[in-house]
Design a protein around this nucleic acid. Sequence first.
DNA 1: TTTTCAAGTATACGCTTGTTTACTCTGGTG
DNA 2: CACCAGAGTAAACAAGCGTATACTTGAAAA
Lengths: 185, 185
Amino acid sequence: MTRDREATGERILAAAAALFAEHGYDQVTVRMIASAAGANVALVNRYFGSKANLFATVLITASTVTAAIEGDPGRMPARLAEHVAHRLRTGASEPLVRMLDRAGTSPEIRAVLAARVEAGLVDAISARLPGPQARERALLATVIILGAGSLRRLLGPDGLHDADPAVLEARLETAFRACLAPPGG
Amino acid sequence: MTRDREATGERILAAAAALFAEHGYDQVTVRMIASAAGANVALVNRYFGSKANLFATVLITASTVTAAIEGDPGRMPARLAEHVAHRLRTGASEPLVRMLDRAGTSPEIRAVLAARVEAGLVDAISARLPGPQARERALLATVIILGAGSLRRLLGPDGLHDADPAVLEARLETAFRACLAPPGG
DNA sequence: TTTTCAAGTATACGCTTGTTTACTCTGGTG
DNA sequence: CACCAGAGTAAACAAGCGTATACTTGAAAA
């Protein structure tokens, strides 16, 4: 066994990211992470301080829907609709939403997640919205993004598996547009 | 202490309902329930078999958004919008959504919740939708309902606390209408 | 009053959790 | 080669969980 602290740390981080996204914070134990990473249990706490801190570290690197948020703000509803529709139909999960959704109820974990959602979704969206009440509108769009994650996880992809993608996207785009449109427009 | 099995059982049930809605399944222990009900720990399992079974029993009696779902289907989007807007602004939580949202990740618990959401939301809505693809449309509306619960719990009511209720409702109504409208309409 | 049975109690079992401690091993350095 | 900082390990810790057991108590029936 080659002894390489950095490599081991990254194996732990990668294993934790995969497991947290798959099963959620509560359901994942440090022993699971260590086992998946091929490392000893003690190293998880040794290198990351605590499970909660490891989770926070994972969250920083977790990808978000930024691809759908960035770009021409006018087409953001369409991109978000496509993103959400794809997730609803296929079951491919946005890691951040998934972790959020599967996160436990521990207050500190929720706080970490809330901060991440604020930064990665609400702030990212509202920063690109022209006009007043940008945050309020961004929050409404976040409702749909989060709700899609909840629904999919709860009921599985079965419900919308063979829905017409075009119709689904059209509905969602209208919904997103209603959320995001400037007031009075 | 008056000895009354039925009354004790109901005290346990009521305490469990309140605690599950407040903190979620995972975060509530049978000891907390027993303590809040003024009953002994052992009675919880004695009367309800298991914690999971108690949760299932609580769910059956948990109220839902039925008031907003029932009535003239044409005005369902408006009623749902009002319901969700009210929750988003004030923080008043629908018990079922709250429990769902705060539920843990245990598969059996999720299954119980999924069944309840299917019956109380998806089926209830789709049964009142004229036209084809009723279930698909009901699922999209459920996305918003669940998402509102997620967002509110995660970020608190601060974000939309002082948003204009009328504007909020109007946006949500349009969104709900986009989800629920018959195809091709 | 005495009997009796279920309601209620105290306690501990078995297990899992995150975390820590004390140890062993290894590879690079003098 | 001898050495040693540090990577990796094994084992146990304390705490908390759901649950089961064996016991005590109280009120209604005889």
